[in-house]
Design a protein around this nucleic acid. Structure first.
Lengths: 260, 260
DNA sequence: CGGTATATTGACTTGCCTCAACACGGGTGG
DNA sequence: CCACCCGTGTTGAGGCAAGTCAATATACCG
């Protein structure tokens, strides 16, 4: 219940900083001296939607979720964050747009914005790196909008599995088996579905031998091409044949203004 | 059908640049010398999802939409862009994540990334301004995710009306009446709905005297509080009374890690 | 003043949600 | 080592919001 803030001396974990590639050894040292480490237990809230808090936070281990709530309790999980991810980017003088909550035991690195700002003024690469991170974030969110707005339950779940298949794939490059670090309700809130719909869809994927799940939190991808076809909305569901259903509206499109 | 690229000399429109506040007169001049103007007719495509094109584009008039498509033609409109907006931010070496298409006659300002990069190296305020813009973009997209993932049709439409009520409100500060610059199918693709659902909801809002629409593209807000209540999901629909329906799942939440 | 594009409405269908029962698993104490 | 319990996940039955298909009305434009 109380807050466990560990002032960071050396134990700054050997996290992969997003700046690692652009900063020299000296700057890294300097940066690390500004860092304090925060320990989080599952369920801990780091920052709440609407509150103003000008720190820069980086995930060093564990898993966090960023969520927005409606007054009646419905929630949308905007993103999950794990090792090496920046918690959020928003204007410093502006309230947090989302609530950040720890899904399981996690560690954060915290830097006061002032300190980071001072360093960035001396090392313009930092701002450039941040800009690239922001760009990636935007691209990712745009991708997710298609999922939320236009995909069916099965397409959403397939997309989800593929999304969380990748990161852990780094170890075994074929990546057939991996762990889901979150529970069913969180998957549902991430995809704009209910827990039950997620379950049903997972069961169907099992039944159709596209994945196997030796236990609820463990996924084995058996037929990746099929999963990808589903995720990208390739309408292979034999349900509707050609022109009807989920209309493939084709628009007149006038010209293409070439590059240059 | 052919592309109309007007090499910009002086006629660079007196657009409000996002950098206006941070650059001195001299730098502005320099920036403007790098700009060329692109004219767009309704339906023109500026850049297509997946294609690589390293220019920096700024809307100087008109209205554009940024959309992503699924292979069967379903599309999600990720954002609309109008005067003063940057078209998109994404890593320069990376393919466009969305297709940008002109909704009606528009003008763009184009700067080659190389030129902008060079200027930004000399004027770090530029990168900082871009970072702020990116942050705003992220915050906006997060807000839209709630709309797409967790709101009902009526809540989506109400949110939409309020969103497009603001920008044009600058003129009359009470902003009761405004024009919708896009058509029904575009509203639908923006909200993850069908044209028909959008229509039906607008009709309902008219019937309940929350808005009036003297003609399809013109909206008069009659009861703003009611519209806001709907938009923010205040569940005033007398449909379900207390605990049931669209469950207000309440989670145990452990601690709040304070600022500092 | 027609004629076409767009918007609206209606009747019907369906995908996803709701409510509720049931299964599983892993920790605990008898 | 087994019986019980509680949290989580899964499955089933039924309802409703939003989608589909199709007809009609309205706006826009020459």
């Amino acid at each position: 219940m109380e807050l466990r803030v560990v002032q960071g001396r050396r134990p700054v974990p050997n996290t992969v900083w997003p700046f690692d590639s652009v900063l020299d050894r000296n700057c890294r040292r300097q940066l690390e001296s500004l860092v304090s480490v925060v320990d989080l237990a599952p369920g801990d809230v780091v920052a709440r939607e609407g509150e103003v808090n000008g720190d820069f936070l980086l995930v060093s281990s564990g898993l966090l979720k960023l969520a927005k709530r409606l007054p009646d309790g419905r929630q949308q999980i905007v993103a999950f964050r794990s090792v090496g991810d920046i918690l959020t980017l928003h204007r410093r003088d502006t309230p947090w747009p989302v609530t950040a909550q720890s899904v399981r035991a996690s560690k954060l690195c915290r830097i006061e914005w002032e300190g980071l700002r001072r360093m960035a003024d001396a090392n313009p690469e930092i701002d450039r790196a941040l800009l690239d991170l922001a760009a990636d974030e935007i691209t990712g969110l745009q991708e997710r909008m298609v999922t939320l707005g236009r995909k069916s339950t099965e397409e959403k779940v397939a997309s989800f599995l593929l999304e969380f298949c990748q990161p852990l794939a780094v170890q075994s490059n074929i990546c057939r088996e991996f762990a889901l670090p979150m529970r069913r309700p969180e998957i549902a809130d991430y995809l704009g579905l209910t827990t039950e719909s997620v379950c049903r869809e997972l069961s169907r994927l099992k039944r159709e031998k596209i994945v196997a799940m030796p236990r609820p939190s463990r996924v084995v991808v058996l037929n990746r091409p099929a999963l990808e076809a589903l995720a990208h909305g390739e309408t292979n569901r034999a349900t509707y044949s050609s022109g009807s259903g989920m209309q493939a509206r084709r628009e007149r499109e006038r010209a293409r203004v070439g590059p240059r």
